[in-house]
Design a protein around this nucleic acid. Structure first.
Length: 431
RNA sequence: GGAGGCUUCGCCUAGUCCGGUCUAUGGCGCCGCACUGCUAAUGCGGUUUGGGUUAACCCCCAUCCCGGGUUCAAAUCCCGGAGCCUCCGCCA
């Protein structure tokens, strides 16, 4: 939810944001009207309640002969209060609905337009040349005995997979590398629940226009998270935090996505799947620090990809392609040789106070007043897709795959993965 | 899954049986002021969180885990739910 004061005092800014998103501008006026209506309802109900309270007090003080009359007046007022409260409830609900319909206000400088209007900020690393016919990650993974999508489909359906042998080791190697680096950077590592209540899902903005993407366990009224962002944001719901410096978590969890509406897209391999594991960075900070924190998250993402020796580019996502909660979003797209294209590998969003307001996450400012916090998230490593990218980029003519130095400690020191190789046990980095 | 107990303004706590004097008691902590040439101690005052209104102060409303209900009136009575604890069962 955006700040109501901003809408009241600078509706033009909010309208401009809607325009940049290509979203309905009239929603701003709807929200203003709902806000005014609610305040009227509050005033009316409060006033009646005050009268009714006084009348009720008078009952017990009334002399016996006055009592019936006083009681009658109190009764009448009670009925009026009840009516006013019903009207207030309706006005509250209308305001909330209008409030929830409005996405976050985009930052200045976000490119206008939609999916095709993203601006490439920089391109890092050399796109390798291959003097042989490149294979895609599934061909490579199958040859290595690392990825099995056929049996994944047998057991769970399309877009499921098994990681086996070196594939399974790669999963843990990447998770270890991500968590190790995050801890070194000062993040608190977290293993987060993948099943959450509706409040957490709604609070992070995933039940709006994108609720088709989400798995719901109807019987228990729980949702499977699409990212641990949901649990990490919800972790501090309703709390007042000390944010003298940003509070940073690196959360590991499985992620589940229905991929509704993506039929026919990326059907091969493990680039787009219903389930994968991910290490996610999440920050709580003061709103004035959010933009700087956003760049820090982006920098950590880039360092991770450089450690994996993957060529990539950084993209500033256009307003129309931003999620509901985001005021700005940078994607990092890594090179996939089999597609001859850069594809999204990580993503970081500045949600400003939008999520925290819904989730009621606050901090005390210098004057000791409670203020709404800002939240930001960023992918450190979406494991399945990263494995796919690694296999493709680092493939060699003979079907083997180069292992980046950063990953070797967790792959038994192996410098290369070769079909049929004996698996070495992971060795922790030298003490 | 079954049985019982608990949940009060940061923490602890009084109040709940028997509805109105609860505008919620006291302690700890915290903040301010006074006093003591330091520290400590002491005294006085303040200290839930939201909303409405306001230039501001004031004032008003809500808030005793949450949601309903009874009543002129609910921390208190009734119904439903959540969380925590204990015991039994089951389970990795």
């Amino acid at each position: 939810m955006i700040d109501l004061r901003l809408v009241r005092e600078h509706p033009d800014l909010v309208t401009a944001s809607q325009r940049a998103r290509g979203a309905d501008e009239s929603r701003v006026d709807e929200l203003l009207a709902a806000d005014a209506a609610r305040r009227d309802a509050v005033r009316h109900a409060d006033e009646l309640r005050a009268q009714q309270k006084a009348a009720s007090q008078a009952v017990k003080k009334a002399a016996p002969e006055e009592r019936p009359a006083v009681l009658e007046r109190a009764r009448a007022l009670a009925a009026e209060v009840k009516e006013a409260e019903e009207a207030l409830r309706a006005a509250d609900a209308a305001l909330r609905a209008a409030h929830l319909r409005l996405p976050n206000v985009v930052h200045d400088g976000v490119p206008p337009g939609g999916e095709d209007d993203a601006v490439t900020l920089r391109t890092v690393g050399e796109v390798p040349g291959y003097d042989f016919e490149v294979r895609d990650h599934l061909q490579i993974g199958e040859a290595l005995g690392a990825i099995d999508t056929e049996r994944g489909a047998k057991v769970s359906g399309a877009r499921f997979y098994f990681l086996t042998g070196p594939g399974a080791l790669l999963e843990f190697a990447l998770a270890q590398l991500a968590i190790t680096r995050a801890v070194a950077a000062g993040f608190t590592p977290v293993v987060a629940p993948a099943l959450v209540k509706p409040e957490a899902m709604e609070g992070t903005g995933f039940l709006g226009e994108h609720d088709e993407e989400v798995y719901r366990i109807e019987r228990d009224d729980l949702y499977l998270v699409g990212t641990s962002e949901v649990a990490l944001a919800g972790m501090h719901a309703g709390e007042v935090l000390d944010l003298s410096s940003p509070r940073r978590y690196a959360g590991w969890s499985s992620c589940f996505r229905r991929e509704a509406g993506s039929y026919g897209k990326d059907t091969r391999g493990i680039i787009r799947v219903h389930w994968f594991d991910k290490v996610e960075m999440f920050s709580f900070c003061r709103p004035e620090e959010a933009a700087a924190e956003h760049l820090r998250l982006l920098a950590w993402e880039e360092e991770f990809l450089r450690a994996l020796e993957l060529p990539y580019r950084v993209v500033d996502i256009a307003a129309g392609d931003l999620g509901t909660s985001a005021a700005r979003k940078y994607d990092i797209e890594a090179w996939f040789p089999s597609q001859g294209a850069y594809r999204e590998l990580t993503s970081t969003s500045d949600c400003t106070t939008f999520q925290a307001r819904r989730l009621n996450i606050r901090y005390k400012d210098a004057d000791g007043r409670n203020q709404t916090a800002a939240t930001l998230n960023g992918t450190l490593c979406a494991i399945a897709r990263t494995i796919a990218c690694l296999l493709e980029v680092h493939q060699r003519a003979d079907g083997s795959v180069h292992v980046p130095a950063a990953l070797r400690p967790w792959l038994g020191g192996a410098e290369v993965l070769t079909p049929g190789m004996a698996l070495a046990a992971p060795v922790p980095p030298a003490a």
